[in-house]
Computed example of a mutant assay.
Amino acid sequence: MDRYSPVELLALFQRAQALFTDRVDAVDPDQWEDEALPGWTVADLVAHLVGEHLWAPPLLAGEPYTDIHVADDIATLLGADPFTGWETAADGSLAAFAEDDALTRTVHLQRGPTPATQYVLEMTADLTVHSWDLARATGGDPRLDRELVDAALVLAEQLPDDGVPGFFDPPLAVPTSADAQTRLLARFGRKDD
């Protein structure tokens, strides 16, 4: 994690949140049940990220993942207005990561103790890749911010060659000459058209 300072990581996280927020804001009311990923609707995808961001404040406060209870049903996570549900969760996680010493802490994830800098990089990569998923599902602009792509590639290069079952699909083969966005998406099992 020496590639980015805590200040740079926080700025990247904030940009990734803004990118995803723009994509959520662009969802038309009749698109929430459209497929975003195999087995996931647009609502499922946004609810997934709402849940992820609701986990961040208690994790950064030192609570182990086993003690944190976040709703897992879409209706509760998104509420009456999915955009407001997303923004509320995003604001809470950004505030938690922005606390003075937040990125010097260790969070206790299911896989074990993890430096907060690694955790914020993972959240940034998740937001970046899912911004592409959401744009593709709703007919939005699938181009991603190059700096976010580069940061997400740092995480992607840490993934096992067969993916992470239940979390990340195995990577797809792409030419070594492929651009950074194509390489990133392929690393997460997605094909950039």
Rank of each mutant, 00 (worst) to 15 (best):
P160L: 10
L19K: 01
A80S: 15
R111M: 14
L19R: 09
D44C: 00
S131C: 09
A125W: 08
L148D: 02
F13R: 11
V50F: 08
H130V: 12
S93K: 05
L172P: 03
F83I: 15
A178V: 06
P58I: 04
W132P: 03
D193Q: 11
R15M: 06
P115G: 04
I68H: 05
P64F: 06
E147M: 09
M123A: 14
R136E: 15
G163A: 11
L37C: 13
T84S: 13
D22Y: 00
R183C: 05
D81S: 09
A178E: 09
L78F: 07
H69L: 13
S5W: 07
A90K: 02
D67P: 00
G189K: 01
D141Q: 06
L45K: 01
D34W: 10
L109H: 03
P64K: 09
W86R: 06
G139Y: 04
D2N: 15
L127F: 12
F188L: 14
D22C: 00
D150S: 14
T66Q: 14
G140T: 08
T117N: 01
W55P: 02
P29C: 08
A80G: 15
L12F: 06
Y4Q: 12
P113K: 03
L9C: 03
Q181S: 09
P82Y: 05
A71S: 15
D193N: 13
T124F: 03
L127T: 11
A151Y: 02
F188T: 07
R187P: 02
D169V: 04
R15G: 10
L153I: 12
A151Q: 08
R187A: 13
L172C: 07
D145W: 02
I68R: 09
L185R: 05
A43C: 02
L109N: 01
A152P: 05
T104W: 00
Q110A: 15
P64M: 03
L155K: 08
D179N: 12
R190T: 03
L10Y: 03
P38V: 07
Y119Q: 06
D150N: 14
G85Y: 05
Q17E: 14
R15C: 03
P64I: 11
P6D: 11
L103T: 03
V70L: 11
L153Q: 10
P29I: 10
D100M: 10
L127D: 11
D28C: 00
I68M: 11
A18V: 01
E99M: 12
R190G: 01
L9W: 02
P29F: 00
L94W: 10
L59R: 07
L9D: 01
G163D: 09
R136V: 15
L10C: 07
L144R: 05
E8D: 13
P38E: 14
E8H: 12
A90E: 07
M123V: 13
R146A: 15
G62Q: 11
D2R: 14
F167C: 04
D44W: 00
D126P: 06
Y119M: 10
W32R: 02
D193G: 15
T128A: 07
P58N: 08
D133V: 10
S177W: 01
H48Y: 07
D141A: 09
T104K: 00
E63A: 15
P38G: 08
A90M: 07
Q118M: 13
T114W: 04
D162F: 12
D25K: 13
F97W: 15
